[in-house]
Design a binder for these strands. Structure first.
Lengths: 308, 308
DNA sequence: TGAATCCCAGACGCGCGGCATATGGCAATA
DNA sequence: TATTGCCATATGCCGCGCGTCTGGGATTCA
């Protein structure tokens, strides 16, 4: 036989009452079995917990220390039960969110994370910014629970991907460039005007979505872009633009990041390229917190009307 | 039915094995009852802890959090058992030691406390210095577990008092007093030489032991002392001596406290008064730590040969 | 595609253990 | 000394946890 919680529950009541008979009453049982259980507990511990007096029982020194511990054990069990329930309902747990390099600049992304943290304060949220391929691997390996990705559909098996919204892409030009100076028609720029430029491409292998959007738009505009240096991510591409090496197209939300030497200009015309934002998670990801996050993000995306 | 430790023990093994059949093996039982118990636990929690797969079972998110809590609960129970055993054996607990005002000056007292703390480091020792009557009340009320007192026998009912040792009393004289100057026979002083002095008495009501020892010695020396001002404790009596108001007799160990304006001189002759040091505890004090302390002190006292 | 394997879940019966009833013993109170 | 209050022991019952047997679903071979 071993110590069971029943022993602790009985012991606590007897200790509080100082009286086996009254404790039995409170426990809804008879006195003899309660006496037996207390005796069995003492035998298990090999420690006398009570001194039997003529009128009731009295805790020994060891009984007093054991009472404190027993109370805390019982409280811990209750807390563990509640924690499990909270976790099952998604109110508690961990949520690892993956972001593409451009994610933090899209106002929708940090807003959603903030809203989730406010709604589920017991879920500890961690964020990791990495390249597209790492996001997918992370989701598969379980190091990430959910990720924003720059794609319109679901390429990888085992993942659920939902398109959230799209946004126009804008041209990023060196500040010294002729088209960068706001002329008489300072509005949108037809993509054809960039036919002669050198295009800096980024994330071609890891996350080809934006790369392909750029190529498709150019071809639609009637030219095949001259490709220049390749950059691993948007930020590095923009710093190449700043040094005058070429131009590139980026999601409109990147305009929030003002960068010395870089000027953004919106594009117009039928060839307007678009950048997509999606949310991805494991298809068999059972975490309720993940489900809540995905649902919250999708609902919010539907409510958005304006695009960036 | 309620959750029992058995459920947690089973759950932990199943979670670790990821396999009900193997877990049952490790638990020395068959698979079906183990499946039942896990299911019963899940039903109690109203939370699914495992996902049943083709090859074994897999913890859910809620199961993972519950596993951590279950492990800590089981560890807490083990620790509680050990703590109770340590307390029962006196290796752990609290020990409130009472000291008379002269206690800290007797080298034996702090030495014993230090030795006890080294021998039983898990027992948290607290000390309180107070008057004799407060010591007795504290022992009775349970605010003190054990006390050193200045008496040779047990006056109060319900307490066990053991005489530890005695020590001679010495005269405390104002520095300006004629007998304070070390003359040609600078050794011990016959008590009769103080017959004409004013005696400062202390702790007459609260702890009459030393007061009575003084009177008895004087009467044995053939005179009845003229009593001066009364002081609540030895220290205050000595400060009265320092201001020249009178003389008093104190335990020899008090000489360790050198005080400006006070000179100590040993006494000699058949009327040599003695101060006693005893250890007292409740007779029905069941605390093993108390028993250890009393035993240690008594043993050490027997080993002492010299007196202070 | 069918057989084999693996593993969890349900059905059923048994035996242990926890509980209730009845009773004894001890100490405090009158 | 009688009475009361309370814990401990004795005994029988019943529920429940466990073992055995069996079924069903998924994966892995041939």
């Amino acid at each position: 036989m071993a110590i069971e919680l029943r022993h602790l529950r009985y012991f606590v009541v007897v200790a509080q009452e100082g009286h086996i008979t009254r404790a039995a009453e409170r426990l809804g049982m008879q006195q003899p079995p309660l006496s037996q259980q207390i005796k069995a507990l003492e035998h298990q511990l090999d420690v006398q917990l009570f001194r039997r007096k003529a009128r009731g029982v009295e805790l020994t020194e060891a009984g007093r220390t054991f009472l404190a511990d027993a109370l805390s054990v019982l409280a811990c069990v209750d807390e563990a039960v509640e924690a499990a329930r909270r976790t099952a309902s998604g109110k508690q747990g961990r949520l690892g969110i993956g972001l593409p390099p451009s994610g933090p600049f899209h106002p929708f992304v940090p807003r959603m994370i903030r809203r989730f943290r406010e709604t589920y304060p017991l879920v500890s949220v961690s964020m990791e910014e990495c390249l597209r391929a790492e996001l997918v691997d992370g989701l598969r390996a379980g190091t990430l629970d959910v990720a924003f990705i720059r794609a319109s559909i679901a390429p990888p098996e085992g993942l659920d991907v939902h398109l959230l919204m799209d946004e126009p892409m804008v041209a990023a030009l060196p500040a010294a460039h002729a088209l960068a100076r706001p002329g008489p028609r300072a509005g949108a720029l037809p993509l054809e005007r960039l036919a002669a430029e050198t295009f800096i491409v980024y994330a071609r292998l890891q996350g080809p979505a934006l790369y392909e959007a750029t190529l498709a738009a150019c071809s639609k505009a009637g030219f095949s872009p001259r490709l220049g240096q390749e950059a691993p991510r948007i930020i590095s591409a923009l710093s190449l633009v700043a040094s005058g090496i070429g131009v590139t197209l980026v999601p409109a939300s990147m305009q929030r990041m003002t960068m010395d030497g870089v000027v953004f200009r919106p594009l117009r015309g039928p060839s307007q390229p678009k950048a997509f934002l999606s949310i991805a998670a494991r298809r068999d990801g059972y975490s309720a917190a993940v489900r809540h996050f995905v649902a919250m993000v999708r609902r919010a995306a539907q409510d958005e009307v304006r695009s960036y």
